[in-house]
Protein backbone atom coordinates (compact mmCIF):
# COMPACT_ATOMS: atom_id res chain seq x y z
CA UNK A 1 0.00 0.00 0.00
CA UNK A 2 1.06 3.65 -0.44
CA UNK A 3 2.51 5.54 2.52
CA UNK A 4 0.06 8.42 2.14
CA UNK A 5 -3.68 8.69 1.68
CA UNK A 6 -4.78 8.72 -1.96
CA UNK A 7 -8.10 9.99 -3.26
CA UNK A 8 -9.07 6.58 -4.59
CA UNK A 9 -8.85 5.04 -1.09
CA UNK A 10 -12.24 6.65 -0.47
CA UNK A 11 -13.82 5.34 -3.64
CA UNK A 12 -15.22 2.07 -2.36
CA UNK A 13 -13.06 0.00 -4.73
CA UNK A 14 -9.95 -2.11 -4.23
CA UNK A 15 -7.94 0.77 -2.74
CA UNK A 16 -10.60 1.35 -0.04
CA UNK A 17 -10.50 -2.31 0.87
CA UNK A 18 -6.71 -2.22 1.23
CA UNK A 19 -6.93 0.75 3.58
CA UNK A 20 -9.56 -1.02 5.65
CA UNK A 21 -7.61 -4.25 5.85
CA UNK A 22 -4.22 -2.72 6.51
CA UNK A 23 -5.05 0.15 8.84
CA UNK A 24 -8.49 -0.03 10.46
CA UNK A 25 -9.25 -3.70 10.96
CA UNK A 26 -5.91 -4.69 12.55
CA UNK A 27 -6.38 -1.98 15.19
CA UNK A 28 -10.14 -1.76 15.63
CA UNK A 29 -11.35 -5.14 14.44
CA UNK A 30 -13.88 -7.08 16.51
CA UNK A 31 -16.48 -9.67 15.65
CA UNK A 32 -19.13 -7.09 14.75
CA UNK A 33 -16.91 -4.71 12.78
CA UNK A 34 -15.15 -7.54 10.97
CA UNK A 35 -18.41 -8.46 9.24
CA UNK A 36 -18.05 -5.17 7.29
CA UNK A 37 -21.80 -4.91 6.82
CA UNK A 38 -23.57 -1.64 6.02
CA UNK A 39 -24.75 -1.52 9.66
CA UNK A 40 -23.66 -3.22 12.84
CA UNK A 41 -26.22 -5.35 14.65
CA UNK A 42 -26.10 -5.20 18.43
CA UNK A 43 -28.41 -6.68 21.05
CA UNK A 44 -29.92 -4.44 23.71
CA UNK A 45 -31.82 -6.74 26.01
CA UNK A 46 -34.13 -8.68 23.72
CA UNK A 47 -34.12 -5.96 21.05
CA UNK A 48 -31.89 -6.29 18.00
CA UNK A 49 -30.63 -2.85 17.06
CA UNK A 50 -28.91 -1.83 13.82
CA UNK A 51 -26.40 0.99 14.16
CA UNK A 52 -24.51 2.83 11.41
CA UNK A 53 -22.67 6.03 10.53
CA UNK A 54 -21.58 7.72 7.31
CA UNK A 55 -19.93 10.97 6.22
CA UNK A 56 -21.08 12.81 3.13
CA UNK A 57 -19.24 15.10 0.79
CA UNK A 58 -20.53 15.69 -2.71
CA UNK A 59 -19.87 18.06 -5.60
CA UNK A 60 -22.02 19.77 -6.57
CA UNK A 61 -23.80 20.14 -3.22
CA UNK A 62 -27.10 20.59 -5.09
CA UNK A 63 -27.67 18.15 -7.95
CA UNK A 64 -30.62 16.94 -10.06
CA UNK A 65 -32.76 14.81 -7.78
CA UNK A 66 -31.42 15.99 -4.42
CA UNK A 67 -28.66 17.62 -2.42
CA UNK A 68 -26.13 16.71 0.26
CA UNK A 69 -28.91 16.82 2.87
CA UNK A 70 -31.10 14.27 1.08
CA UNK A 71 -28.04 12.12 0.56
CA UNK A 72 -26.91 12.24 4.19
CA UNK A 73 -30.27 11.08 5.52
CA UNK A 74 -31.06 8.51 2.82
CA UNK A 75 -27.53 7.07 2.97
CA UNK A 76 -27.85 6.25 6.63
CA UNK A 77 -31.46 5.10 6.41
CA UNK A 78 -30.44 2.76 3.57
CA UNK A 79 -27.50 1.33 5.49
CA UNK A 80 -29.99 0.47 8.26
CA UNK A 81 -32.50 -0.91 5.76
CA UNK A 82 -29.88 -3.16 4.15
CA UNK A 83 -29.44 -4.74 7.58
CA UNK A 84 -33.16 -5.47 7.68
CA UNK A 85 -33.90 -2.59 10.04
CA UNK A 86 -36.52 0.07 10.07
CA UNK A 87 -35.03 3.46 11.04
CA UNK A 88 -35.82 4.96 14.46
CA UNK A 89 -33.53 7.89 15.18
CA UNK A 90 -30.73 9.74 13.43
CA UNK A 91 -27.96 12.15 14.38
CA UNK A 92 -26.51 14.83 12.15
CA UNK A 93 -23.14 16.56 12.50
CA UNK A 94 -22.27 19.47 10.23
CA UNK A 95 -18.84 20.79 9.36
CA UNK A 96 -19.32 24.04 7.50
CA UNK A 97 -16.88 26.41 5.85
CA UNK A 98 -16.92 30.02 6.94
CA UNK A 99 -18.90 32.07 4.42
CA UNK A 100 -21.29 29.29 3.41
CA UNK A 101 -24.70 30.85 2.58
CA UNK A 102 -27.31 30.39 5.32
CA UNK A 103 -30.02 30.14 2.64
CA UNK A 104 -28.25 27.10 1.16
CA UNK A 105 -27.90 25.55 4.60
CA UNK A 106 -31.60 26.07 5.18
CA UNK A 107 -32.44 24.32 1.90
CA UNK A 108 -30.19 21.42 2.84
CA UNK A 109 -31.69 21.06 6.32
CA UNK A 110 -35.17 21.25 4.81
CA UNK A 111 -34.33 18.33 2.55
CA UNK A 112 -32.98 16.41 5.53
CA UNK A 113 -36.26 16.85 7.35
CA UNK A 114 -38.25 15.77 4.28
CA UNK A 115 -36.12 12.66 3.82
CA UNK A 116 -36.30 11.78 7.52
CA UNK A 117 -40.10 12.21 7.41
CA UNK A 118 -40.24 9.88 4.40
CA UNK A 119 -38.20 7.34 6.32
CA UNK A 120 -40.32 7.68 9.44
CA UNK A 121 -37.31 8.67 11.52
CA UNK A 122 -36.43 11.76 13.52
CA UNK A 123 -33.13 13.57 13.75
CA UNK A 124 -32.77 13.61 17.52
CA UNK A 125 -29.26 14.93 18.12
CA UNK A 126 -26.64 16.89 16.26
CA UNK A 127 -23.56 19.06 16.23
CA UNK A 128 -22.19 21.97 14.23
CA UNK A 129 -18.57 22.98 13.63
CA UNK A 130 -17.47 25.91 11.52
CA UNK A 131 -13.97 26.00 10.03
CA UNK A 132 -12.09 28.90 8.49
CA UNK A 133 -12.50 29.78 4.84
CA UNK A 134 -10.42 27.55 2.60
CA UNK A 135 -9.87 24.84 5.24
CA UNK A 136 -12.48 22.75 3.47
CA UNK A 137 -14.89 23.12 0.62
CA UNK A 138 -18.45 24.10 1.55
CA UNK A 139 -20.14 21.59 3.80
CA UNK A 140 -19.64 18.03 5.07
CA UNK A 141 -22.41 16.16 6.89
CA UNK A 142 -22.02 13.08 9.07
CA UNK A 143 -25.12 11.16 10.05
CA UNK A 144 -25.54 8.16 12.30
CA UNK A 145 -28.66 6.11 12.76
CA UNK A 146 -30.20 3.41 14.82
CA UNK A 147 -32.98 1.14 13.68
CA UNK A 148 -34.96 -1.81 14.90
CA UNK A 149 -34.15 -5.04 13.05
CA UNK A 150 -37.40 -6.47 11.71
CA UNK A 151 -38.49 -9.71 13.27
CA UNK A 152 -37.41 -12.79 11.38
CA UNK A 153 -34.71 -11.03 9.36
CA UNK A 154 -31.08 -12.03 9.84
CA UNK A 155 -29.12 -10.26 7.16
CA UNK A 156 -25.34 -10.55 6.72
CA UNK A 157 -23.12 -9.98 3.70
CA UNK A 158 -21.93 -13.49 4.42
CA UNK A 159 -25.44 -14.92 4.11
CA UNK A 160 -25.65 -15.65 0.37
CA UNK A 161 -26.00 -19.33 -0.61
CA UNK A 162 -25.69 -21.30 -3.83
CA UNK A 163 -28.80 -21.08 -6.08
CA UNK A 164 -29.96 -17.82 -4.46
CA UNK A 165 -31.43 -15.40 -6.97
CA UNK A 166 -30.29 -11.78 -6.98
CA UNK A 167 -32.74 -8.91 -7.31
CA UNK A 168 -32.10 -5.20 -7.82
CA UNK A 169 -34.87 -2.81 -6.85
CA UNK A 170 -34.52 -0.54 -9.91
CA UNK A 171 -32.28 1.00 -12.57
CA UNK A 172 -28.49 1.08 -12.10
CA UNK A 173 -26.04 4.02 -12.13
CA UNK A 174 -28.53 6.94 -12.00
CA UNK A 175 -26.86 8.72 -9.08
CA UNK A 176 -23.26 8.52 -10.27
CA UNK A 177 -24.12 9.62 -13.79
CA UNK A 178 -26.39 12.46 -12.60
CA UNK A 179 -23.60 13.80 -10.37
CA UNK A 180 -20.99 13.52 -13.11
CA UNK A 181 -23.29 15.20 -15.61
CA UNK A 182 -23.99 18.09 -13.20
CA UNK A 183 -20.46 18.48 -11.82
CA UNK A 184 -18.62 18.40 -15.13
CA UNK A 185 -21.41 20.12 -17.09
CA UNK A 186 -21.31 17.30 -19.63
CA UNK A 187 -24.54 18.44 -21.23
CA UNK A 188 -26.21 15.03 -21.28
CA UNK A 189 -29.93 14.78 -20.71
CA UNK A 190 -30.71 16.96 -17.65
CA UNK A 191 -33.53 14.51 -16.93
CA UNK A 192 -30.89 12.11 -15.62
CA UNK A 193 -31.61 12.51 -11.91
CA UNK A 194 -30.01 10.97 -8.87
CA UNK A 195 -32.06 8.08 -7.50
CA UNK A 196 -31.39 9.25 -3.92
CA UNK A 197 -34.30 7.94 -1.80
CA UNK A 198 -34.92 5.80 1.25
CA UNK A 199 -35.33 2.07 0.55
CA UNK A 200 -36.65 1.00 3.96
CA UNK A 201 -40.18 0.41 2.62
CA UNK A 202 -38.83 -2.26 0.29
CA UNK A 203 -37.36 -4.08 3.27
CA UNK A 204 -40.60 -3.74 5.23
CA UNK A 205 -42.55 -5.20 2.29
CA UNK A 206 -40.41 -8.33 2.09
CA UNK A 207 -39.71 -8.84 5.79
CA UNK A 208 -42.49 -11.42 6.11
CA UNK A 209 -40.31 -13.76 4.05
CA UNK A 210 -37.87 -13.80 6.98
CA UNK A 211 -35.20 -16.48 6.57
CA UNK A 212 -35.80 -16.65 2.79
CA UNK A 213 -33.91 -13.34 2.49
CA UNK A 214 -30.22 -14.20 2.76
CA UNK A 215 -28.29 -11.00 2.06
CA UNK A 216 -28.97 -7.36 1.19
CA UNK A 217 -26.80 -4.34 0.41
CA UNK A 218 -27.33 -0.88 -0.97
CA UNK A 219 -24.99 -0.52 -3.95
CA UNK A 220 -23.51 2.95 -3.39
CA UNK A 221 -19.83 3.69 -4.18
CA UNK A 222 -18.33 0.90 -6.24
CA UNK A 223 -21.81 0.20 -7.65
CA UNK A 224 -23.41 -3.19 -8.12
CA UNK A 225 -20.04 -4.76 -8.97
CA UNK A 226 -18.56 -3.59 -5.66
CA UNK A 227 -21.42 -5.03 -3.61
CA UNK A 228 -21.39 -8.34 -5.46
CA UNK A 229 -17.66 -8.74 -4.90
CA UNK A 230 -18.08 -8.06 -1.19
CA UNK A 231 -20.96 -10.50 -0.82
CA UNK A 232 -19.15 -13.19 -2.84
CA UNK A 233 -16.10 -12.82 -0.62
CA UNK A 234 -17.98 -12.67 2.67
CA UNK A 235 -20.27 -15.59 1.74
CA UNK A 236 -17.51 -17.66 0.07
CA UNK A 237 -19.66 -18.08 -3.07
CA UNK A 238 -19.39 -17.21 -6.77
CA UNK A 239 -22.00 -15.09 -8.50
CA UNK A 240 -23.30 -14.84 -12.05
CA UNK A 241 -24.96 -11.70 -13.36
CA UNK A 242 -26.87 -11.59 -16.66
CA UNK A 243 -25.89 -8.36 -18.40
CA UNK A 244 -29.15 -7.89 -20.30
CA UNK A 245 -31.17 -8.38 -17.14
CA UNK A 246 -29.72 -5.34 -15.33
CA UNK A 247 -32.10 -2.41 -15.83
CA UNK A 248 -30.28 0.75 -16.98
CA UNK A 249 -31.97 3.88 -18.30
CA UNK A 250 -31.12 4.27 -22.02
CA UNK A 251 -29.73 7.80 -21.49
CA UNK A 252 -27.60 6.63 -18.56
CA UNK A 253 -26.33 3.74 -20.65
CA UNK A 254 -25.45 6.09 -23.52
CA UNK A 255 -23.62 8.44 -21.17
CA UNK A 256 -21.60 5.56 -19.72
CA UNK A 257 -20.79 4.22 -23.17
CA UNK A 258 -19.46 7.59 -24.26
CA UNK A 259 -17.27 8.01 -21.19
CA UNK A 260 -16.10 4.40 -21.16
CA UNK A 261 -17.66 3.76 -17.74
CA UNK A 262 -19.39 0.56 -16.67
CA UNK A 263 -22.91 1.18 -15.25
CA UNK A 264 -22.32 -1.77 -12.94
CA UNK A 265 -19.48 0.11 -11.20
CA UNK A 266 -21.30 3.42 -10.79
CA UNK A 267 -22.90 4.60 -7.52
CA UNK A 268 -26.60 4.32 -6.68
CA UNK A 269 -28.28 6.01 -3.69
CA UNK A 270 -31.79 4.58 -3.69
CA UNK A 271 -31.43 0.93 -4.64
CA UNK A 272 -31.26 -2.35 -2.84
CA UNK A 273 -29.67 -5.63 -3.90
CA UNK A 274 -31.48 -8.63 -2.43
CA UNK A 275 -30.27 -12.24 -2.32
CA UNK A 276 -33.21 -14.57 -1.86
CA UNK A 277 -33.89 -18.29 -1.87
CA UNK A 278 -34.99 -19.14 -5.45
CA UNK A 279 -38.47 -20.30 -4.45
CA UNK A 280 -39.23 -16.86 -2.98
CA UNK A 281 -37.78 -14.78 -5.79
CA UNK A 282 -41.09 -14.22 -7.60
CA UNK A 283 -42.78 -13.15 -4.35
CA UNK A 284 -39.94 -10.72 -3.55
CA UNK A 285 -40.12 -9.29 -7.04
CA UNK A 286 -43.90 -8.83 -6.82
CA UNK A 287 -43.67 -7.14 -3.41
CA UNK A 288 -40.90 -4.79 -4.50
CA UNK A 289 -42.56 -3.90 -7.80
CA UNK A 290 -45.73 -2.82 -6.02
CA UNK A 291 -43.84 0.14 -4.57
CA UNK A 292 -43.20 3.13 -6.84
CA UNK A 293 -39.49 3.05 -5.87
CA UNK A 294 -39.34 -0.63 -6.88
CA UNK A 295 -41.40 -0.73 -10.04
CA UNK A 296 -38.38 -1.47 -12.22
CA UNK A 297 -37.04 -4.22 -9.98
CA UNK A 298 -35.56 -7.20 -11.80
CA UNK A 299 -33.88 -10.51 -11.18
CA UNK A 300 -30.34 -9.95 -12.41
CA UNK A 301 -28.47 -13.10 -11.58
CA UNK A 302 -27.83 -15.98 -9.25
CA UNK A 303 -25.34 -17.55 -6.90
CA UNK A 304 -23.53 -20.38 -8.65
CA UNK A 305 -22.70 -23.81 -7.28
CA UNK A 306 -18.95 -23.25 -7.70
CA UNK A 307 -17.46 -22.23 -4.33
CA UNK A 308 -15.37 -19.08 -3.87
CA UNK A 309 -11.66 -19.52 -4.32
CA UNK A 310 -8.97 -16.90 -3.70
CA UNK A 311 -7.46 -15.78 -6.98
CA UNK A 312 -10.24 -16.85 -9.31
CA UNK A 313 -13.00 -14.49 -10.43
CA UNK A 314 -15.83 -14.41 -7.87
CA UNK A 315 -18.29 -12.50 -10.07
CA UNK A 316 -19.04 -13.55 -13.63
CA UNK A 317 -21.04 -11.58 -16.15
CA UNK A 318 -23.01 -13.39 -18.83
CA UNK A 319 -23.01 -11.21 -21.95
CA UNK A 320 -25.89 -10.91 -24.43
CA UNK A 321 -24.00 -13.36 -26.63
CA UNK A 322 -24.20 -15.93 -23.88
CA UNK A 323 -20.43 -15.87 -23.23
CA UNK A 324 -19.03 -15.39 -19.76
CA UNK A 325 -16.51 -12.87 -18.52
CA UNK A 326 -15.10 -11.63 -15.24
CA UNK A 327 -16.90 -8.61 -13.77
CA UNK A 328 -14.04 -6.57 -12.30
CA UNK A 329 -14.11 -4.58 -9.08
CA UNK A 330 -13.46 -0.89 -9.70
CA UNK A 331 -9.82 0.02 -9.02
CA UNK A 332 -10.62 3.44 -7.65
CA UNK A 333 -12.45 6.55 -8.77
CA UNK A 334 -13.86 5.70 -12.23
CA UNK A 335 -11.87 7.68 -14.80
CA UNK A 336 -13.40 8.76 -18.08
CA UNK A 337 -11.39 7.73 -21.12
CA UNK A 338 -9.95 9.83 -23.88
CA UNK A 339 -12.09 9.16 -26.93
Amino acid sequence: MHDKIHLNMGSGGLASRELLEEVFLPLLGNEVLNLLDDSAEIALGSERIAFTTDSFTVHPIFFPGGNIGTLSVCGTVNDLAAKGATPVALSAAFTIEEGFPIADLRTIVHSMRDSADLAGAQIVTGDTKVVGKGVMDGIFITTSGIGRVLEGLHIFSGGARPSDLIIISGTAADHGVAILNAREKLGFNPEIRSDVAPVHRIVERISHLGPQIHAMRDPTRGGIAGVLHEIARASRVTIKIVEDAVPVRPDVRACCALLGLDPLSIANEGKLIIFTAPESAETVLECVRKLPEGKEAAIIGEVEAEPYSEGSPPVILETSLGTRRFLPLAEGEPLPRIC
Binding site: L165, V242, D244, A245, V246, P247, P250, P278, A281, L285, A298, I299, I300, G301, E302, E318, S320, L321, G322
Partner: peptide
Protein backbone atom coordinates in the same frame (compact mmCIF):
# COMPACT_ATOMS: atom_id res chain seq x y z
CA UNK B 1 -33.82 -20.74 -13.25
CA UNK B 2 -32.44 -20.55 -16.80
CA UNK B 3 -30.72 -17.36 -17.91
CA UNK B 4 -33.37 -16.76 -20.55
CA UNK B 5 -35.99 -16.45 -17.84
CA UNK B 6 -33.78 -14.00 -15.98
CA UNK B 7 -33.57 -11.85 -19.11
CA UNK B 8 -37.31 -12.13 -19.58
CA UNK B 9 -37.80 -10.27 -16.33
CA UNK B 10 -36.21 -7.21 -17.84
CA UNK B 11 -38.46 -5.22 -20.14
CA UNK B 12 -35.85 -4.42 -22.77
CA UNK B 13 -36.41 -2.47 -25.93
CA UNK B 14 -37.10 -4.09 -29.29
CA UNK B 15 -33.95 -2.53 -30.79
CA UNK B 16 -31.84 -4.06 -28.05
CA UNK B 17 -33.41 -7.47 -28.63
CA UNK B 18 -32.91 -7.17 -32.39
CA UNK B 19 -29.29 -6.27 -31.91
CA UNK B 20 -28.60 -9.25 -29.65
CA UNK B 21 -30.37 -11.66 -31.99
Amino acid sequence: MKPSTISDNFPDTPSKRNNAS
